[in-house]
């Protein structure tokens, strides 16, 4: 494993598999236990450095670190020196002086974790940077797929929605490809980046054509504001062409699953009855996020001298 987890490309197939296997072992070791705590990272300090509000991701990382007995410091940009104009570099040097073993960073600027990694000695885990990547989300998604379908190799994953602005999509395309899955992206052409043709994924515009050949459908959050920038004409048209409703869900193969990284826009990209169906893995994804992040923290920080 590399020292940092900044993007899906930091994991080769062996590394990615090791993370998923480790998460599975941790899940199994903790299953049914009253004390869901391990002493592994006793004495290590993990800083959650969140420049963007993301309660669910922060809590997931916090729980993961605490279950491994690390000391956790939540450093939110709001109300801290950061909001008073302290630069990312100064913040990095502060964390360094405090002896942070790991820094979990969420930032609205693509590449901010890469910058941070060049300034600190500890391991940097990217918890989402701008429209770039969110590698632990991809890991938990891969874990969830493997848990439900028993494999990743050859699994047909269709990712639907605002690929252009989605760090989840970028990380998933990279990681799932590394793990042998076949990824198809479906979106209105306005929400696909120029250059998507160089990605290891097929691209289509017609959701109905792809669904019968999908083992996994991953719906991305679409912000209704996008229509103000003419990415699509209206929420209604988007929903009609790219939303997953019960009719479309019925076109999926029998054991296909429906995923969503959350938070969902019910009625926009996903209908309530789909989100709450047995195919939906949305709640599992949240639970799997904790064990996957425990695995990442263990593998990155456990051996650091």
């Amino acid at each position: 494993m590399k020292r940092h987890l900044l993007e899906a490309a930091d994991l080769d197939r062996d590394d990615a598999t090791l993370v998923l296997d480790t998460a599975a072992q941790i899940d199994q070791a903790l299953a049914g236990r009253e004390v869901k705590k391990l002493p592994t990272l006793r004495g290590r300090t993990v800083v959650n450095l969140f420049y963007e509000d993301s309660t669910r991701t922060r809590i997931s990382f916090e729980l993961a670190a605490k279950r491994l007995s690390a000391d956790v410091i939540n450093f939110s940009a709001k109300g801290s020196s950061v909001s008073k104009g302290e630069s990312l570099k100064d913040t990095a040097l502060t964390l360094e002086a405090m002896g942070a073993d790991g820094v979990v960073v969420r930032h609205s600027a693509s590449g901010a974790p890469h910058r941070l990694a060049s300034w600190v000695k500890g391991s940097v885990v990217n918890a989402g940077d701008g429209t770039h990547e969110h590698p632990t989300q991809a890991l938990l998604d891969a874990y969830t797929i493997r848990q439900r379908l028993g494999r990743l190799d050859g699994v047909r994953v269709t990712i639907v929605g605002d690929v252009l602005h989605s760090r989840v999509a970028r990380s998933n395309v990279g990681l799932l490809h590394t793990l042998g899955a076949e990824v198809t992206l479906v979106a209105p052409p306005t929400l696909l980046p120029v250059g998507v043709g160089s990605w290891p994924a097929d691209v289509g515009y017609d959701l109905d054509a792809v669904l019968p050949k999908s083992d996994v459908v991953m719906m991305l959050r679409v912000q209704a504001e996008r229509m103000n920038a003419s990415f699509f004409p209206s929420a209604r048209e988007y929903s009609r062409r790219y939303g997953l409703d019960a009719r479309r869900m019925a076109a999926l193969p029998d054991d296909a699953i429906v995923m969503h990284p959350g938070p969902m826009n019910r009625g926009m990209e996903i209908a309530a009855e789909v989100a709450d169906s047995v195919r939906s893995t949305i709640v599992e994804q949240v639970a799997n996020g904790v064990s996957t992040r425990m695995a990442v923290l263990y593998l990155l920080l456990g051996g650091n001298a």
């Binding site: 693509s110 590449g111 701008g130 429209t131 770039h132 970028r170 120029v194 250059g195 998507v196 990605w199």
Partner: peptide
């Protein structure tokens, strides 16, 4: 281009 697509810039 290809790189901006991947780098999310």
């Amino acid at each position: 281009g290809d790189r901006s697509a991947r780098l999310g810039l």
